[in-house]
């Protein structure tokens, strides 16, 4: 068991997830996986394709149930989805029948919050993701990056304890992607959120993470828990600044080798 200190927010305890296929066959997506995330930490799950990153995130969100083991948020077992764990998907999930402001207000409306308070809270988060000019626009008129910013604002407006993101910038072009990464850093900083993010982009992982949980190839387990310690002294808010740090290159090489090694195991069988 992990220490139940006040700082630990999420505890994944020896979780195994098997998917039943047709007939008796089953796939083990995750096998005996354990890790934890501290409060205000940005933790990134990284690993080769198919290692079970999305599955892990869906388990934390409560959208799937572990076959064995358990997941705890603040020491309480997770048994289903809830507003304390907001999830952002790779595909666009803005509700097309609501405009930007109504989308951001969606979760608040479910709670029964009054109109004025809702609008005020929404305005704050819409401003945070730089969409104030577009608050009355419907999603059909937004670009991919803007749709993801709506999703971020909508999730944060709910003030979740934990922000879950599954390759949120995977569908975006390279330029939009690093702009969104910078924006996300700014947003995390300002809103004091704890983040669990899935990606297979090494640079995104190093730029965004305080800690990287590197997973083995299928079936997924934790291979190494990598601390991105060099970012503790300096806050990098612009991506180009981090690139020249010698520690960045070292970590990049190390993770790339791990990726290659995992891929080689793949080629052997």
């Amino acid at each position: 068991m992990y220490s139940q200190s006040d700082k630990v927010m999420l505890t994944v305890d020896r979780v195994t997830k098997e998917f039943q296929l047709n007939g008796d066959a089953s796939i083990t997506a995750l096998s005996d996986m354990s890790f934890s995330v501290a409060k205000n930490e940005s933790c990134v799950l990284l690993g080769p394709s198919g290692c079970g990153k999305s599955t892990m995130l869906r388990l934390v969100a409560g959208l799937e149930e572990p076959t064995r083991g358990a997941i705890y948020l603040h020491g309480t077992e997770i048994i289903g989805p809830g507003p304390d764990r907001g999830m952002i998907f790779q595909t666009y999930t803005s509700f097309p029948w609501l405009n930007v402001q109504q989308n951001v207000e969606y979760g608040l409306r479910l709670q029964g919050m009054g109109k004025a308070e809702r609008a005020e809270r929404a305005a704050h988060f819409i401003d945070l993701v730089d969409l104030t000019r577009f608050r009355h626009v419907f999603p059909k008129a937004l670009s991919g990056g803007m749709k993801q910013r709506v999703a971020i604002a909508r999730t944060l407006a709910n003030e979740p304890a934990l922000l879950l993101m599954d390759e949120p910038f995977g569908a975006l072009d390279a330029e939009t992607r690093w702009r969104m990464q910078e924006l996300l850093l700014k947003v995390i900083e300002r809103s004091n959120t704890t983040v669990l993010l899935v990606t297979h982009d090494i640079h995104e992982a190093i730029f965004l993470a305080d800690r990287i949980v590197f997973m083995t190839r299928h079936p997924g387990r934790v291979l190494e828990d990598i601390s991105v310690a060099f970012k503790r002294e300096v806050k990098f808010l612009q991506k180009e600044d981090i690139l020249t740090d010698p520690e960045y290159g070292r970590l990049d090489r190390k993770i790339m080798r791990m990726m290659r090694r995992e891929a080689m195991v793949n080629a052997d069988d």
Partner: peptide, 27 residues
């Protein structure tokens, strides 16, 4: 109706009935 829309609503705190009325029906 896209599963992600329903799952998004669930992680935003919607009950099953709310999902039906605020996501499935409009979609």
């Amino acid at each position: 109706v896209r599963a992600e829309l329903i799952e998004t609503a669930l992680t935003l705190g919607a009950t099953r009935k709310q999902v039906l009325m605020t996501v499935v029906l409009p979609a």
